[in-house]
Write a protein that binds this DNA or RNA. Structure first.
Length: 419
RNA sequence: GUGAGCGUAGCUCAGUUGGUUAGAGCACCAGGUUGUGGCCCUGGGGGUCGUGGGUUCAAUUCCCAUCGCUCACCCCA
C-alpha cells in the first residue's frame, strides 16, 4: 500500500470543518486590521531562501527540500513565507502603489525534519507582513493580531515573550562586546557554539546545552546595549501591548533562528501542545528587503503554525464546530423511481438546497438510517400511492411531523424545506 | 543526524508461559412482517497478526533484519 510521505498528513473530510473554522477566524482578524491576502508559488529559486533566511540557519543548512528541475535550476519548496513575500513585493513594486503594504497569507510550508508532536515536513502557516514603515506601533500590532487570533480560537494557556535585537549597528557593536566576553571562555563552549562563535555569535543564546547556558548566563545582554532608537521603540511596543491588555514577558535569550530579524522579536507559546511549544513567532526585519535587492525598506511580521494551534485547540477543547447537516434526503420507496429521484434532487439542488439520496438500491429503512446519519433536516418520500396521485410526503426529522405536498407545487416544498 | 517505544480487522484495543477454524467494542451490511430514522435485539462481511528471514514437529507469540509509526533531542511554526 502506498502511504503518504513521512511527515505529511492528509486533512480528511472529518478534519476540514475545524480547518475552515480556523481559516475563517484568521481571515476575519486580518480583515479587521486591513491586511490583504497574498498567495505565492510553493517553490522558489533556492538562492532566495539561501540569501533571505541566512546560510547559517538550520533551515537553510539542513532542512530545505531542494531539487533541480530539468533545466538544472535549483529550486526549493518554501520553508517559510517571509522571503517569498518580500520577493513578490520587490518583483511587483508593491511599494509603489502604497507606501505601507499590509499582507497576510495561509499556506503550506516544507522542512525536512524528523516529525514529532506538532512538527511535520509539510505543515501550514498563516502570517502577516507589513512592509514600508519603521513604526513600533506596527510591531505591537503584529503581536496583537497573533494574540487576537489565538484568543478568538478560544486558547488560554498562552505566554508571550518579546525581545529586541536592536539596529544593525548596535547589533554589530554588541557582537564585539559579546565576542570579547566569550573569547577566553570559548574553549569551554560546545562544538556547535564554537562554530556559532565565528558564524553567528548571537545564536549561542539559543543553545540548550547546560554548560553553554552557564557560560552565557552572565554574559552581557543585548537588551542592555541597545541604541537610543531601539530602546525607545521597544518602550513603545511594551506600552502599547499594555494598553491592549496583552500580557508579555521580556526574554533576552529570544534570538530566533532566522538571520533577518532586527529590533523587536516575539514568540507566543502554548502549554497545551507537546515539546514544541511555539505556536507563533515573528518580529521586525528591516534589512531583508535590501538583502533581496529592493530599496532599503523597514518591515515587520509574524508566522504561526496551524497544526500546532489546532493541536492546542483540541487539547484545550477550545472551540467546537457546528454539526454538518443537509437540507433534505430523498427516499425512494419503489426501486424503479431512481431516475425520478435523481431528477428531483437536481431541481432542489438548483434551488440552493443541499440534497442527497441513495444510489445503492437500499431499503427504505436503510435510507432512513442514512438520512439520520447525515443529519438531514427533512426526508422526502417518493413512491407508492401518493406518487401516483402526484403527491410527496415530507418528514421533519427533528420532530417527526409529516406533511403531504403536491409535486406540482414544488415551490411550496422548497419554501418549507428552506424555513 | 541521534535516542527510546510501538506495529493484531476501517478505528480503539484484547490475546497467545509457542499448539486446533485469532477475539471484543465501535463502524459497515442485512433483518426485527411486507413504505420510515435516532434506542434496542439478531445475524453477516472483513485480518497472509507491518514485511523478510531464522529457531522449532509447530510461531501472531522466541531471535535477527528491514520498513513504518509515535515521542524526545537538535532546531523550529
Amino acid at each position: 500500500m502506498i502511504k503518504s510521505v513521512t511527515g505529511t498528513k492528509d486533512i480528511l473530510p472529518s478534519d476540514i470543518p475545524r480547518w475552515i473554522y480556523l481559516e475563517k477566524t484568521v481571515e476575519n482578524v486580518f480583515n479587521n486590521f486591513n491586511y490583504k491576502e497574498i498567495r505565492t508559488p510553493v517553490f522558489e529559486e533556492t538562492s532566495l531562501f539561501a540569501r533571505g533566511i541566512g546560510e547559517e540557519t538550520d533551515i537553510v543548512g539542513k532542512e530545505m527540500y531542494t531539487f533541480k528541475d530539468r533545466s538544472d535550476t535549483s529550486l526549493t519548496l518554501k520553508p517559510e513565507m517571509t522571503a517569498a513575500v518580500v520577493r513578490s513585493y520587490v518583483e511587483h513594486s508593491l511599494g509603489a502603489q502604497q507606501s505601507l503594504v499590509k499582507l497576510f497569507y495561509i499556506s503550506p510550508m516544507f522542512r525536512q525534519e524528523r516529525p514529532q508532536a506538532g512538527r511535520f515536513r509539510q505543515f501550514h502557516q498563516f502570517g502577516a507582513e507589513a512592509i514600508g514603515s519603521p513604526s513600533p506601533l506596527l510591531d505591537a500590532e503584529m503581536v496583537q493580531m497573533a494574540y487576537e487570533i489565538l484568543k478568538s480560537l478560544g486558547l488560554k494557556n498562552l505566554t508571550i515573550k518579546i525581545n529586541s535585537l536592536g539596529t544593525p549597528k548596535t547589533r554589530e557593536n554588541y557582537k564585539k562586546i559579546l565576542k570579547n566576553y566569550l573569547a577566553d571562555k570559548k574553549d569551554k563552549l560546545s562544538e556547535d557554539s564554537r562554530r556559532r562563535f565565528e558564524t553567528n555569535i548571537l545564536r549561542i543564546f539559543d543553545s540548550k546545552i547546560e554548560s553553554d547556558q552557564i557560560i552565557i548566563k552572565d554574559a552581557p545582554k543585548l537588551i542592555d546595549h541597545l541604541d537610543e532608537e531601539s530602546k525607545a521603540d521597544f518602550e513603545v511596543v511594551k506600552n502599547q501591548l499594555s494598553k491592549f491588555g496583552i500580557p508579555f514577558t521580556i526574554d533576552p535569550s529570544l534570538v530566533r533562528g532566522l538571520d533577518y530579524y532586527t529590533k523587536l522579536t516575539f514568540e507566543i507559546d502554548s502549554g497545551s501542545v507537546g515539546a514544541q511549544t511555539a505556536l507563533c513567532g515573528g518580529g521586525r526585519y528591516d534589512l531583508l528587503i535590501e538583502t533581496l535587492g529592493g530599496k532599503p525598506t523597514p518591515a515587520t511580521g509574524f508566522a504561526a503554525g496551524i497544526e500546532r494551534i489546532l493541536l492546542a485547540c483540541e487539547n484545550e477543547k477550545s472551540f467546537t464546530v457546528p454539526e454538518q447537516t443537509i437540507n433534505v434526503y430523498l427516499i425512494r420507496i419503489d426501486n424503479d423511481l431512481e431516475s425520478v429521484v435523481s431528477e428531483l434532487a437536481g431541481k432542489l439542488r438548483k434551488e440552493n438546497l443541499s440534497v442527497d439520496f441513495d444510489y445503492l438500491q437500499r431499503s427504505v429503512k436503510a435510507q432512513m438510517r442514512e438520512a439520520n446519519k447525515l443529519n438531514a433536516k427533512y426526508v422526502l418520500f417518493i413512491g407508492g400511492d401518493e406518487y401516483k396521485e402526484g403527491l410527496l410526503k415530507l418528514k421533519n426529522m427533528s420532530d417527526g411531523a409529516e406533511k403531504i405536498l403536491s409535486l406540482e407545487k414544488i415551490h411550496e416544498l422548497i419554501s418549507t424545506i428552506k424555513k
